[in-house]
Simulated assay, not measured.
Amino acid sequence: MNLQEHYDQLYKTAKEAILDGKYSIDSLIKNESDSRFGITLLIRPSDEIKSEIQLLLYDLRKAEPEQYFYPDSDIHITVMSIISCSEEFALNQISPNDYIEIICKSLVEVDRIKIQFKGITASPSAIMIQGFPTDETLNNLRNKLRENFKNSGLQQSIDSRYTISAAHATVMRFQDKLQDPKKLIEISEKYRDYDFGEFEVKNLELVYNDWYQRKSNTRVLGDFGLR
């Protein structure tokens, strides 16, 4: 299945769930004692892309003001979830420099990564921007990371939840009952093929983060510039 087909299937399933009232509410967003943390390698979209995303969020916020919307500072693409968020993990269990070393080794042959954000998709609990890498560089990097971490003996949980292959960015999560599911889908249809723009990735960040990548709970462990 190619990436567009993957996003289309996600959207079809989510649309049916939302309209049937079978969507999921994330009850942990408001839980201040949520202690699920992990380690993630991520990409942040350009300011120009974030400005375009705000147009979508403005419309969504008007229709569903009680939901959770990602601020600009938290919008990201996950390159690799190296240690999945859990209550059992704490930063003092690892040496971040060991992880930085593996990532540097994996980036040796990476020249540049370009990503186009076009259209939106959804899950039964969230709205996401569809990301399309313009070539195989991101996938090749992910495979290098898988190989190098697997051979390193370091603590990691790569692909334990699912094998990452997409390049989407989550921008809205359902934290309360939807006020008007039909209106939400109407807005989603409006942006289904909207071109948010293309950007070249300038750097990648290795972060210690909570489940929602909130800036206030995020600690940058490494910053990797791309040539």
Rank of each mutant, 00 (worst) to 15 (best):
E198L: 14
Y191R: 05
G131W: 06
T134Q: 15
L206I: 13
Y208V: 09
S152N: 09
Q130C: 15
A166H: 15
H168L: 04
F224V: 14
T218A: 01
W211P: 00
Y194F: 15
S160F: 07
D135N: 15
G225H: 11
N140A: 12
L141H: 09
I187S: 00
Y191C: 05
Y191G: 05
N203E: 15
I129W: 01
N203D: 13
L178F: 12
Q155I: 12
I185R: 05
D159P: 13
V171C: 08
N148M: 06
W211C: 04
K215M: 11
L154H: 07
E198M: 09
E147G: 03
L141D: 01
L226S: 11
K202N: 12
N143V: 01
L226D: 08
R219W: 00
K177C: 07
L184F: 06
T218C: 05
F199Y: 15
R214I: 00
F132K: 02
F132Q: 01
A167K: 12
V201A: 12
F196N: 01
P133D: 06
K190G: 00
D193K: 14
I164T: 08
V207M: 04
Q175T: 13
N139S: 14
F199N: 06
H168I: 03
F149R: 08
S160N: 10
Q156L: 06
N140M: 13
L206Y: 10
F199P: 00
V207L: 06
R214L: 01
E205C: 01
K183F: 12
R214E: 09
S160A: 08
D193I: 11
T218W: 00
G225I: 11
E186H: 05
K182C: 05
S216W: 02
I187W: 06
S165V: 08
R146A: 02
N139D: 13
K183Q: 14
W211D: 03
Q130P: 02
E186S: 10
F199T: 03
R192F: 13
Q175Y: 01
Y194N: 05
P133G: 03
A167D: 11
Q130N: 10
F174D: 03
L184D: 07
I129V: 14
Q130I: 01
N140Y: 10
D135Q: 05
V220T: 15
F196T: 08
V171M: 09
S165I: 07
D176M: 12
S165W: 07
S216C: 03
D180Y: 10
F199A: 06
R192T: 02
Q179S: 15
P181W: 13
L221Y: 08
K177E: 14
F196C: 04
I127L: 15
W211H: 09
A167G: 09
I185H: 08
R219N: 08
K150Q: 12
L154I: 02
R192N: 07
G153K: 13
Y212N: 02
I158S: 08
E147F: 14
V207F: 07
R192G: 01
F132T: 02
I127Y: 02
G225W: 02
V207A: 09
N209D: 04
I187P: 00
D210M: 00
Q213K: 12
D176S: 15
R219M: 10
L141T: 02
L178R: 09
I187E: 07
R146F: 06
Q156M: 11
T170A: 11
K202F: 03
N217V: 02
F224M: 11
D193R: 03
H168R: 06
M128G: 02
N151D: 10
F132W: 03
W211M: 10
L204A: 05
